[in-house]
């Protein structure tokens, strides 16, 4: 098991570096550079001004040299300096990451709990109106654009009903502390987390239902039934356990996509996370920030894949033996 993890970690590091190189090339291929953007914001500039900025950012160096400098830093976990924000990228991401993690983790938990529960319910009640209803809701959730739900939810719950704050991370200027602060952030979290979780809730519902039904037709379940085990025991011990395998795979795969979804959710709800940070950094060509966010989110995907594999091994003993 340890050897397996070590091998996967080494592979992950190489994939990460490759992603950084690819994105470095891609983003430098985009028209314009951060010096011009910053000069633009200043409203005036001359050759000297631009030249000074480019020298300061190292943009006057040959491309290969810039790549080499960046990668050398990245290997030592130095993500460089943000031109636009004038601070180290690691610090910037570190500032924003907790907000995104809080948002995505909450969404993740909501969708897994809600999705798996509903999926199990639907599978057990297969063919009844209950099953139809759950499946229909899942289909609609699945077909709904995330940003649109976010807009409609903020309109309904924040503007019309006034129940929940429609934007931001905390009440501006309130400066709560202790429990008040937790409650305040919690209140702000509800809308973005549930809309971000909606799409995945639907996927987990469908996935769980489908794999429960599939597994319950497999031979070993039939054997268990033939042995006279009670249905609830069969469901729990055999069916659900095996049906969770694809769900786990999916969870690992989707962990990375949830960061992408966070761009939209954070935009609509003005949530100060790394999704927004990256979106703004792209139009400003703040190269190091973009690469830093890619680095972090790809690292998270790889980490989740690894966790998935380990979980898989725990849930399905056959795999543990195989490795």
């Amino acid at each position: 098991m340890l050897g397996f993890i070590a091998a996967r970690l080494v592979k992950a590091v190489f994939i990460l570096l490759a992603i950084l190189v690819l994105n470095f090339v891609l983003i430098h291929a985009a028209p314009g550079d951060p010096a011009a953007v910053m000069a633009g914001e200043a409203g005036a500039a001359d050759e000297k001004f631009l030249q000074d900025l480019r020298e300061r950012f190292g943009l006057d160096q040959p491309f290969a040299m810039q790549l080499w400098t960046y990668m050398r830093g990245a290997v030592q976990l130095d993500l460089g300096y943000s031109y636009r924000q004038q601070m180290p990228v690691a610090e910037l991401i570190w500032d924003r990451l907790p907000a995104t993690l809080l948002l995505t983790a909450t969404a993740f938990v909501i969708s897994i709990v809600l999705g798996v529960t509903a999926g199990v319910l639907a599978a057990q009640a297969q063919g009844t109106w209950w099953d139809t209803l759950i499946s229909a809701v899942a289909l609609i959730f699945y077909a709904t654009p995330l940003f649109w739900v976010a807009l409609m939810a903020s309109l309904l719950f924040s503007v019309v009903l006034g129940w929940l704050p429609g934007f931001g991370y905390q009440t501006i200027g309130a400066n709560y502390t202790g429990l008040d602060r937790v409650l305040d952030v919690g209140k702000h979290l509800i809308l973005p987390a549930s809309t971000l979780g909606l799409f995945f809730t639907a996927i987990y519902m469908r996935m769980t239902r489908a794999s429960m039904l599939e597994v319950s037709r497999l031979d070993f379940v039939k054997t268990a039934r033939a042995k006279g085990l009670r249905n609830s025991v069969i469901q729990r011990r055999h069916v659900l356990r095996n049906a969770l395998l694809p769900v786990i795979t999916l969870a690992g795969l989707q962990a990375g996509q949830i960061v992408g979804g966070a761009v939209l959710t954070e935009t609509v709800f003005a949530w100060p996370g790394i999704g927004r940070l990256m979106f703004e950094a792209i139009s400003q060509r703040d190269y190091n920030v973009i690469l830093g966010v890619f680095f972090i989110s790809a690292a998270m995907v790889l980490l989740f894949n690894l966790v998935t594999d380990i979980l898989y091994g725990i849930v399905d003993p056959r795999i543990r033996i195989a490795t």
């Binding site: 924040s158 429609g166 934007f167 931001g168 009440t171 501006i172 200027g173 935009t267 609509v268 003005a270 100060p272 927004r276 703004e280």
Partner: peptide, 20 residues
Amino acid sequence: YYQVIPDAASRAVAFETGQV
């Protein structure tokens, strides 16, 4: 206090609700 609110609609709401 200069409040940073990165979204135009949210800035409008913040003014409406008296936060700025």
